[in-house]
């Protein structure tokens, strides 16, 4: 088996086991009040972190693509105008694509 196959299989199984571990916590832990409160806030903190990384990660250093940022900002405007999810993501993509086309 080649080195690439080993890497593909080891990393795939490892990533799967991480997912499995997350959904395998015993109910006795999950039913605790403090765990429930943390569980509610966990995706808020982590997904906000993910958005930040997608906006500001220039490959291991801080970097900013203003056209990307402008697109996401346009999406936020659509959110503030109470537009639907699909409208929000399409506005973001179209804005960024247009800015990339003209700059």
């Amino acid at each position: 088996m080649t080195a690439i196959w080993v890497a593909v299989l080891v990393a795939s199984v490892g990533c799967y086991l991480l997912k499995l571990a997350g959904v395998s916590l015993p109910p006795s832990i999950l039913e605790r009040d403090d765990v429930q409160r943390v569980a509610t806030l966990l995706p808020v903190a982590m997904l906000a972190g993910l958005v930040a990384v997608e906006l500001f990660d220039g490959g291991g250093s801080l970097g900013l693509d203003l056209r990307l940022l402008a697109g996401v900002a346009a999406g936020v405007v659509a959110l503030l105008l109470r537009q639907s999810f699909l409208v929000v993501i399409i506005v973001a993509a179209v804005t960024t694509a247009l800015l990339r086309a003209v700059t």
Partner: peptide, 17 residues
């Protein structure tokens, strides 16, 4: 990225958040 699809990703997570 040419189609701006990379902007859809953070915009989608923000919208869901």
């Amino acid at each position: 990225a040419t189609l701006g699809l990379d902007a859809m990703v953070p915009a989608a997570f923000l919208a869901l958040l």
